[in-house]
Simulated scan of single mutants.
Amino acid sequence: MLHAIIMAGGSGTRFWPASRRATPKQLLPLAGDCSMIQATRARLGAVTPAERTYVITSKSLVAPIAEQLPELREANIVGEPCRRDTAPCVGLAAVLVAAEDPDAMMLVCPSDHVIEQHDRFAEAIQRGEAVLNEHPDAIITFGIRPSYPAESFGYIQQGKQLARHDAFAVECFREKPNAETAKEYVDAGTFLWNSGIFLWRAQTILDALAKHEPEMHAHLQNIANAIGTPDYDETLQREFEAIDGKSVDYAVMERHSEVVVIEAPFDWDDVGSWQAVSRLHPHDDHGNAVVGSHIGIDSKNCIIHATPGHTIVTIDTEDLIVVQTADATLVAPRTSEERVREAVAQLNRREMTDLM
């Protein structure tokens, strides 16, 4: 059976000051009326029931996520003892799922994507299941046809097409490119954006970790052996903390012998920074993307985000990000959005934890 895994452990620092430790971006309504994680769960509802949906997050977010997703079982919202990147995250999910269903398929999704076409999303997953039934040892990823030469996304190069399927062997993965290289990828026509959505059998990812990351797998196996025993919580804490964290891309995807990419038939956006607001919300006559109340006088191409009951006024401004919350305001050139993380680091150094 198919089980869905929502990865929701990120801190969303690039969305400061709206995103905070207690309420990171996955708990915020950045692209609609519901939060990002609620939208993710609604989308997954088209392919898996609530009882086969898991959330892997940080310990501090278990309670607020449970409040936002009351349909999930308490045991299905799992708090990692510490942050260890995505390979341990999916490995932990795999041992939990395999304990219930040794033959399980796992659909792994980040909690901060925007995919509004739920029917097309379900269609893509069904295509992936069909591929997996014929190629049980495959790891499947879903690629997005580039609409522009993005520098903020990773890329997947398509290789040979699989027989009887509209799917391709992965030739290689490419990290986030510079502008010139991104244009080359788009012009080539064989590169897709890496969506970070994966489909595999639980046993396949565990076998891959055993082969490529044996120390990580050993810790995960110790956790698996403790499931259902009185020592489980203590074992999870000890063994997970001992793992050397790595991304699933480095640990497995770039090393597995059978990786397949399916071009997704749905529109997609990775809501990674304030620039996403410009892509996801309508613009006024001067190119400003506005959430909340805004008065612009000779203001162009700005991203404005105001809390309810507050009005932002801009005069003679262009290409700015302006974000207002109850206790902090961000003003920055759009080209400097990556430096928002530096502001969060400054807050940390100054021990201004109430703003983090």
Score class of each variant (00 low, 15 high):
His135Gly: 01
Glu71Pro: 00
Ile243Tyr: 05
Ala306Leu: 03
Glu180Lys: 01
Ala63Asn: 14
Cys34Pro: 02
Arg145Asn: 07
Arg120Trp: 02
Ala169Phe: 10
Ala42Arg: 15
His118Tyr: 04
Ile140Met: 03
Thr53Trp: 08
Leu192Gly: 04
Gln221Glu: 14
Trp200Met: 13
Glu129Val: 05
Gln237Trp: 03
Arg21Trp: 14
His212Met: 02
Ala75Asp: 15
Glu213Ala: 10
Ser35Cys: 09
Glu318Lys: 05
Glu180Ile: 04
Met105Gly: 00
Val90Glu: 01
Ala210Tyr: 04
Ala251Asn: 10
Leu44Cys: 10
Ile303Gly: 00
Pro333Cys: 05
His219Met: 03
Pro81Met: 11
Pro214Gln: 10
Thr325Arg: 08
Asp207Ala: 15
Ala226Thr: 13
Ser293Glu: 15
Ala326Cys: 04
Phe168Ile: 03
Pro88Asp: 05
Pro24Ala: 02
Glu258Thr: 06
Ala167Glu: 03
Val322Asn: 05
Cys109Tyr: 08
Ile315Val: 12
Gln221Gly: 00
Asp119Phe: 10
Ala150Thr: 10
Gly287Asp: 01
Ala169Asn: 09
Pro64Gln: 13
Lys300Cys: 11
Ala276Met: 13
Ala122Tyr: 06
Ile144Asn: 05
Gly9Arg: 10
Thr311Pro: 06
Thr23Trp: 13
Ile56Ala: 07
His294Lys: 07
Tyr54Ile: 02
Glu175Arg: 12
Pro265Ile: 09
Ser35Asn: 08
Asp187Phe: 00
Gly245Trp: 00
His281Arg: 09
Gln117Ile: 03
Trp193Leu: 15
Met105Lys: 04
Ile227Thr: 11
Ser273Pro: 08
Asp101Ser: 12
Pro29Tyr: 09
Val186Tyr: 01
Thr57Tyr: 11
Val78Arg: 12
Tyr54Met: 03
Arg334Cys: 12
Met36Cys: 13
Tyr54Gly: 04
Ile156Trp: 10
Cys109Met: 14
Ala66Arg: 15
Tyr185Leu: 01
Ala87Trp: 13
Val131Pro: 00
Arg349Pro: 02
Ala150Gly: 06
Glu134Tyr: 04
Thr325Ala: 03
